[in-house]
Amino acid sequence: MLRKLIVAGALAAMTLGTNPVHAEFPERTVENIFPWSAGTALSVSQVIAKAMGEELGVSVPVISTPGAAGTKAFITAMNRPADGYTIFDGYVAPLVLQPVLGNADWTYKDFKPLHSAVSNAFSIGGRKGETRWTDFEGLMAYGKANPGKLRYSSGSRNNLPHMVIAKVLQSYGVVAQNIPYKTDGDARKDLKAGVLDFSFVNVGAYLQDKEGFEILLVLSELPGAKASYDGAPSITDLKIDLGLSGLAPMGWTWWLVHKDTPDEVADVLRAAMTRAMNRDDVKEQISRVGFVPLDWDHTQYDEIVGPVAGQLGAMSNALAWEEEELKKLR
């Protein structure tokens, strides 16, 4: 009796769960593997996931899987079946930057894109009431005169803002020490407390406390980014070439699936995500946070993502340069 019941239960479970994948995808919850800790960016992914879930007719929970600059989330998702039930939240850091730095062995070609999601512009900001300089050129002049004395934060080490800031500093010949923080908020707190000299400030943080920051340089070439910082100077206003053209807007994420996922499944997800990203309520909610909703669809994936790897590769020497110069000063 006992055994019969178990077998019956197991069979029931099996018939419920193993219909062919393409019969009526999706049959159950689809999971998004998100590469960072809980915070604003997670909430933004949850907004898209919720809308996408409504389009698909199933829930799409976002699972925070932080670790190793986002690569843990990618490996976790790769180890799952390529059945469309797992979506990669493909931030540029784990998707392109970590492979460029030699910390991961995949390329953007190992994934099938669904749709681009959001981008997040950032800037170099100082605190209000700074007396040592009044603008970015002044900061650079100070840094040049005091090598190794400036303290700044890009959030974490070797992330995208770090690379861009290091590149900018390198082109001015300024050596400064990056201080890694667990969360961006802590870095901005220490900037305001006078412990740091400048820090990366994203749009969301700026919108929360416009009076608290002096935005020195917007690290994006998009006019929209400049506008979100109320017209603060951007890299296009500088007379130097950073080799950044086309890279902007940076800090984007594309939602991806494993490349072995059947096309008909990927198409269902693509259609749902495209509808979600085109919804006005979704765009509005994303914009409120200071993120930019993106409307590139999967056909533009190669064209947008392809060149980025090369550009980041060219920039990664800025990180090495910074490390070398700091070592020399010690």
């Binding site: 800790s37 809980a38 915070g39 604003t40 960016a41 997670l42 909430s43 933004v44 907004v47 969360t183 908020g185 969301g204 929360q208 909610q285 409120r288 946070v289 200071g290």
Partner: peptide, 11 residues
Amino acid sequence: AVLIGALLILG
């Protein structure tokens, strides 16, 4: 941090 995220989304 998640509460802040929610508040931001709410505008």
